[in-house]
């Protein structure tokens, strides 16, 4: 079974088509990179896939459920993390973990034990009582990711998880992504770092609401006769910024 299946998925706002009839599959356990210029439609597509926004037409099955018909079922079986909002800054690290674990229905007896295990695994036990506000971006993001997969979702959606994160912390973050994928969690990730595109099993590049290309990084480089994913991206996404709006 596929983790995500879409067929002519479309989202319009008034007469503007943000997502224009996209059809693609994501395999279970895959790390899938979802790239595109600012304004190409990535975030809108991701919101539809998470059951947060109803598609105008077309179909999407995520974690076995139709996002239009059963958005609540979808939400329960996925994890989501965005660059902008991830954790409550005014709460302590362990309070954030408890809050999210509770929201996703974990039993309080389990929460304590598993949040200790989580902090141990991150090697962050001394951070337990710190306010999230006081943490460097890299730590916030690692913690937010761990919280997003605390309930062992089938798929985790990551919207620019490493934006503004330094080179060392970015690599540590990707090691967490690999670990999650090894456990069988499907990872759907957007990024503007083209070296990170190379770490994905397959990558799609969105241009003006459509998927302009989709393949493994190696396949894309061959197809576009490029030596790096950065070149592939530039070949597809160039065009003026005005159109990307």
């Amino acid at each position: 079974m596929k983790a995500i299946e879409t067929e002519a998925l479309t989202k319009r706002f008034g007469n503007f088509t943000a997502v224009d009839s996209i059809s693609f599959d994501v395999k279970r356990g895959e790390i899938f990179g979802f790239l595109g210029a600012n304004g190409a439609g990535k975030t809108t597509a991701m919101r539809v896939l998470c059951g947060l926004s109803k598609p105008t037409s077309g179909r999407a099955i995520v974690a076995g459920h139709d996002v239009a018909a059963r958005p609540e079922r979808v939400k329960r079986r996925i994890g989501y993390m965005s660059q902008r909002f991830s954790l409550y800054e005014g709460l302590k690290v362990w309070e954030n973990i408890r809050l999210y674990a509770g929201i996703y229905g974990a039993r309080s007896a389990d929460i304590r034990e598993r949040s200790d295990a989580l902090l141990r695994e991150l090697d962050f036990e001394e951070g337990r009582d710190k306010l999230v506000r006081s943490l460097p971006t890299g730590w916030k993001q690692k913690l937010a990711f761990s919280v997003a997969i605390f309930h062992e979702p089938e798929i985790v959606f990551l919207d620019e998880p490493t934006g503004g994160v330094d080179p060392v912390a970015r690599r540590q973050f990707w090691e967490l992504i690999y670990k999650a994928a090894d456990r069988g969690i499907t990872v759907f990730v957007t990024t503007h770092y083209m070296d990170e595109a190379e770490y994905c099993d397959r990558v799609s590049i969105m241009v003006d609401g459509k998927i302009a290309a989709l393949d493994s990084p190696r396949g894309l480089k061959e197809q576009f006769r490029a030596t790096t994913m950065d070149e592939v991206f530039r070949i597809l996404a160039r065009g003026d910024d005005a159109r990307a709006l």
């Binding site: 600012n38 660059q83 934006g163 503004g164 503007h192 991206f233 530039r234 160039r238």
Partner: peptide, 8 residues
């Protein structure tokens, strides 16, 4: 930060 390679 958060800007695609072409806009960068």
């Amino acid at each position: 930060t958060g800007i695609d390679p072409v806009s960068r």
